[in-house]
Simulated assay, not measured.
Amino acid sequence: MNQTFRSRPVLVLATTAAALSLSACAYDPATSAETVSSGPDLAGIPAGTYALDPAHGKITWSVSHLGFSTYTGQFPAVEATLQLDPAKLQNAKVTATIDLTEQGTLNEQLNGHLKTADFFDVENHPQARFVTTGVTVVDNDSATVDGELTLRGVTKPVRFTANFNKGAVNPLDKKFTLGFDGYATIKRSEFGVSYALPAVSDEVELHLEAEFKLQGES
């Protein structure tokens, strides 16, 4: 496929991590792997610092390619932390860092092109960063997350929707885990990525899947 397929997934990852994290603040899981509380019983979510599980956290981006197809790719290297106190959801804080030197398109030529100045310019901007600025609870299993995304040296506000999947003790590692899916749409041109417009769409749809693990547990 043409190298121009891909646009600006990096934003995604960062944004998503934050969104998921904030979403966690908005939900109320039980501490059992078998049951999860269905109501807004925030007391069921332990306060503390949560870290994104790299083995179960990914960002998938998609763009329109010439109107013929929807091309997708992923960011495979993301680190994120969530600081959460269920009693003070408005103070929840998510910080995410995306390693732009790692690209996941299953096309080595395209992976290399995405690292150039046409797209992410990793020589000068090897990372993207997302920091939350606020979270608004929509209902028991969804929230909107606002934050600032920095990509290629440009910082812009980003808002995404976070859906809560489950909160419980993971039966495999015995750690309390929060699971989310996050969705956002960004315009890559706002971050200085205008290569191949409008053949490759300006709008980039992001889908984040994430599991956050409570830290400090024995």
Rank of each mutant, 00 (worst) to 15 (best):
A51N: 05
K213E: 10
S189K: 01
F5H: 11
H207G: 01
V200C: 07
V12R: 05
K174H: 08
L114W: 01
K115H: 00
T132F: 03
E34W: 02
L89C: 09
L100K: 04
Q90C: 07
T16W: 08
V154H: 14
V12W: 06
T185I: 11
L22A: 13
S37H: 04
R129Y: 11
F180Q: 05
Q109Y: 12
A168K: 07
L114F: 01
K175C: 03
R188V: 02
T97H: 15
K115P: 00
F5S: 06
N107F: 15
V158L: 11
T31M: 10
S7H: 09
F5T: 08
T185W: 01
P171H: 06
S37T: 10
F160Q: 07
F119G: 04
P171G: 05
K88V: 14
H207M: 06
G112E: 08
S194L: 08
S21L: 11
K93M: 15
T16A: 12
F68H: 08
G73F: 10
F191M: 06
T97P: 02
A196Q: 01
V193A: 13
K174R: 10
Q83A: 14
V200A: 15
A92I: 03
E79L: 09
P54C: 06
L106N: 12
K174D: 10
G48M: 05
V169K: 00
V131G: 02
L149T: 13
L52K: 07
A47R: 07
T31N: 04
S32E: 00
N2G: 11
P76C: 07
V94A: 04
L84Q: 05
S64L: 04
I186G: 04
H56F: 14
D28M: 12
A24G: 13
F164N: 06
Y27H: 12
H65G: 08
A117M: 09
E217R: 13
E108I: 01
P46I: 00
F180L: 12
T72R: 14
A96D: 10
G104Y: 00
Q90F: 08
N91F: 11
A128D: 02
F75M: 14
F130P: 05
H56I: 05
I45L: 03
P46S: 09
R8L: 14
V169G: 02
